[in-house]
Design a protein around this nucleic acid. Structure first.
Length: 815
DNA sequence: TGCACTCATATTTTT
DNA sequence: TATGAGTGCA
């Protein structure tokens, strides 16, 4: 029986709860078929407590916290105290005795969010609530559920969790086996396709026929094969964690019913980021008590590209009839100018649920906007600006380096800043980047650990047979594979059989023999319960893996050895290797703090949920941000997601937001003329302060920047200065021709870069000259932008200002 | 096995 | 440009 009568649990004393829970966390509950974590909390003790936490909430927050019964959608704008409301709600549920800690299901997307929530609930209640076993990420909770019911989907409860890399390697084998040209149809692509299907909760039999063409018409077959293969390997990928649980719920009413009964209250963080599978999962579970509270912000939905469905949050009221919608609109983070600028941008999106953020804070600084000649100059300016800000500049208060963040659209943009900051010696930290456990050496080491725990882990074996080099190349590995297949055993066993059959000779045989021997020994030690930290060191030592990196002369080698030490250190917080492996694929952050003040550099995506007093938003150029690819692939939907990204970016700033763009940028080594982002047009003028390009930095357009090397079209610049505003025939013609959005009031920002008369000077067919691209002919005119077919550089869209008529620039000499 | 070479490729990323 | 994967050769 899965559940025990509730009365029995209610009387269990708290102390016992804690002890039982701790032991639970330490040991993985593979073999238990009952709820080991029914952790009653002494209800009287909590109920007797006053609820001082409620006094700290504003009206909306309080409403969201107190509406305990029935479906609730908490629409929480940026910086409106969403986590506070969410955690207080949990505390309130516990304090009022509505639910025991183990009857609350609280899901987040990241471990960080889960951790924070746990801590804050504990703080609110003034005691450690150990027993919230169902507070965690979607994936962590699904692992727990799946371990209990693995057999219902043909798995054993000790299944391994593959990461993306394993997944792709496995798929690659299948692709090769299917005689598909791996070059034209890379396995990585198939990984993405299958992930996408899993995100939409499509098992192989449910993939719609419309998708049949995927991956050269073989996608669906390969998907089915892949799932079979996973089953034989007793493995799942990240997508499976959810999908299998959904399948179990859908096919086993009794199981579902039990959980529906069990989870009295469900809370979901970042609901706008849920994908279809997660949505189904939640909806199935919520059908029991119907007490589901989802928190999210449709304006911050930035993960559509990995399956998140904004529709989930937009549809909430339909999905959960009778839902109470609470809007948290009071912002405690940003100044009014920043808030207004962000609101102005996001207002351009269609189909929003709509929120009006307001704040009590003082006006503060307007959002600053500055243009630069090129990306290097932008980096230089920001570097100098940050240095100046440390001592206070332009009448601003002094900022510490920890107060400052640079948020970029794509990680390659970080480079310019890193280079610059290195040369001027400005300490910085990059947030994001490859995760600790994704690094080669960590994965190799993990493979050794996995094998030591279970000799059947074929994927792990494949990874390390020849790492470090043992002279076991393709040939030898194929023999091992064949031997394993013929005998229907694991690769390790296959290798053993191969050796005893003398199927392998010479150095390879000796090395393989040593490896198998080592694995046996380590496995024996694991079983004997040997201290796992010493064991881990021993494995790395005896396998020759540590030595391998010690002998490596590449500059990365010391760092890798360092990482291996880190890994062993991380083992300390676990009781045994199994427990470690169990969690490591799901939980392992890489945030080391050395205490030094540093500027943070990260992507906009990585910045979600964070806040900084001062934020720099560089690279606001059409094509880069909004990203061309996003718009090409997803049209308006893509553009709107980019706009939400802009909104997320601006709202990260508490006091000071500085947006910048460059007129020229090197893209894949090629100089490209850039247009300021359309989002810049959407910034409301009255909240923006256009920094006069300081001559010192040579910023801005029209000013002959030193880096140009050549005078730009000074005659055009002169004429632009004399332009008689927006009533000129040229402007009117532009308006009529403008295909995108009609430009209403050209903003001050725009004004800075538009050169109307420059445009009106051109007509289609004109031969023109561009400083970087050379000669070409105009093929189209759109706003202040010209489509030009360059003789050498091909078709480009360029701001008119950078163009001169071919005649005035010299002879139209063909190259 | 290690190297030098060509060639294609080029967001955002958690679990 | 610059990075990684794949290939050919010693």
């Amino acid at each position: 029986m899965l559940f025990q009568p509730e009365e029995q649990m209610a009387n269990t004393p708290l102390t016992l709860t804690v002890i039982r829970l701790t032991s639970l966390i330490m040991s993985s509950a593979y073999d238990s078929d009952e709820f080991p974590d029914r952790m009653p909390l002494s209800q009287q003790a909590l109920a007797a407590r006053p609820a001082p936490y409620l006094d700290e909430l504003n009206e909306a927050q309080r409403q969201a916290v107190e509406a305990l019964e029935g479906p609730v959608l908490m629409l929480a704008g940026a910086g409106t105290g969403k986590t506070k409301a969410l955690t207080t709600r949990i505390a309130h549920l516990l304090a009022t005795g509505k639910a025991r800690p183990n009857e609350i299901l609280a899901v987040t997307f990241t471990n960080k969010a889960a951790r924070e929530m746990k801590n804050r609930v504990a703080n609110l209640l003034g005691q450690t609530v150990e027993g919230m076993p169902w507070l965690g990420t979607f994936h962590a909770i699904c692992v727990k559920l799946l371990r209990r019911h693995a057999e219902l989907v043909g798995l054993k409860s000790n299944f391994t969790i593959l990461d993306t890399d394993d997944q792709t390697r496995l798929l690659k084998q299948l692709v090769v086996a299917a005689n598909i040209d791996e070059k034209r149809w890379p396995a990585r692509q198939l990984t993405h396709i299958i992930d996408g299907w899993k995100n939409r909760a499509w098992t192989p039999d449910k993939v719609p026929t419309a998708e049949a063409g995927a991956f050269n018409h073989r996608g669906v077959d390969l998907y089915a094969e892949y799932q079979e293969r996973l089953k034989t390997l007793n493995a799942v990928d990240f997508g499976d964690l959810l999908l299998h649980v959904v399948t179990i719920f859908q096919t086993h009413e009794d199981v579902l019913a039990q959980y529906q009964r069990w989870f009295r209250y469900i809370l979901v963080d970042e609901y706008q980021d849920t994908n279809v599978a997660q949505y189904l999962w939640l909806r199935l579970l919520a059908q029991g008590h119907k007490n589901i509270c989802c928190v999210g912000d449709d304006d911050q939905s930035i993960y559509g590209w990995r399956g998140a469905e904004v529709g989930n949050i937009l549809r909430f009221e339909k999905d959960f009839p009778g839902a109470v919608v609470v809007r948290l609109e009071q912002n405690y983070r940003s100044t009014p100018h920043i808030l207004a600028a962000a609101s102005g941008v996001i207002a351009a999106n269609q189909g929003r649920l709509g929120k009006t953020l307001f704040t009590d804070l003082d006006d503060g600084e307007k959002v600053r906007l500055i243009g630069h000649w090129d990306g290097d100059e932008e980096a230089r300016w920001i570097g100098e600006e940050i240095e100046a800000m440390q001592s206070g500049t332009r009448g601003l208060r002094p900022f510490g380096l920890d107060d400052v963040a640079i948020l970029v659209r794509a990680s390659h943009q970080m480079r310019a800043f890193e280079d610059r900051f290195l040369t001027i010696g400005l300490p910085y930290r990059v947030i994001g980047g490859p995760r600790f456990y994704e690094r080669m050496e960590i994965r190799d080491a993990m493979a050794y650990f996995r094998l030591s725990v279970s000799l059947d882990d074929d994927l792990a074996f494949e990874r390390i047979v020849n790492t470090p080099k043992r002279g076991l190349g393709d040939k030898a590995q194929q023999k091992i594979q064949a031997s394993a297949r013929e005998n229907g055993v694991s690769l390790v066993e296959g290798a053993r059989l191969l050796l005893s059959a003398k199927g392998l000779t010479g150095k390879g045989a000796a090395e393989l023999g040593r490896l198998v021997e080592g694995l046996d020994r380590w496995h024996g030690l694991v079983r004997a319960g040997e201290n796992h930290i010493e064991l881990a060191e021993q494995v790395l030592e005896e396998s020759g893996y540590t030595e391998h990196w010690q002998n490596d002369k590449t500059p990365e080698a010391p760092g890798r050895l360092e990482n291996l030490k880190e890994l062993v250190k991380a083992l300390e917080s676990f009781e045994n290797l199994q427990g470690f492996l169990e969690h490591v694929s799901l939980i392992m952050d890489n945030e080391s703090e050395d205490g030094e003040e540093k500027v943070s550099i990260m992507t906009l995506h990585a910045a979600k949920g964070l806040e900084f007093p001062a934020v720099f938003l560089p690279g606001w150029e059409d094509g880069l941000f909004p990203s061309q690819r996003s718009m090409d692939e997803n049209g308006v939907k893509g553009l709107e997601e980019e706009r939400r990204l802009a909104y997320v970016g601006i709202t990260r700033a508490e006091e000071l937001a500085t947006i910048s763009f460059a007129g020229n940028r090197r893209v894949y080594g090629q100089w490209q003329s850039q247009l300021p982002s359309r989002f810049i047009d959407e910034l409301p003028d009255e909240h923006v302060d256009v920094l006069t390009p300081p001559g010192l930095y040579g910023g801005g357009f029209g000013a002959a920047a030193p880096s140009m090397g050549d005078t730009i079209q000074s005659d055009l610049v002169d004429r632009a200065a004399k332009a008689d505003g927006y009533n000129s025939p040229g402007w009117k013609r532009l308006q009529a021709r403008s295909q995108h959005r009609p430009m209403t009031q050209p903003s001050e920002a725009r004004n800075m870069v538009i050169d109307l008369d420059a445009v009106s000077a051109f007509t289609i067919g004109d031969r023109v000259f561009h400083q970087k691209f050379g000669y070409g002919a105009i093929t189209g005119i759109e706003g202040d932008k010209l489509d030009i077919a360059f003789d050498k550089a091909g078709d480009k869209k360029v701001v008119a200002k950078f163009i001169t008529p071919a005649a005035s620039a010299g002879d139209d000499v063909p190259f």
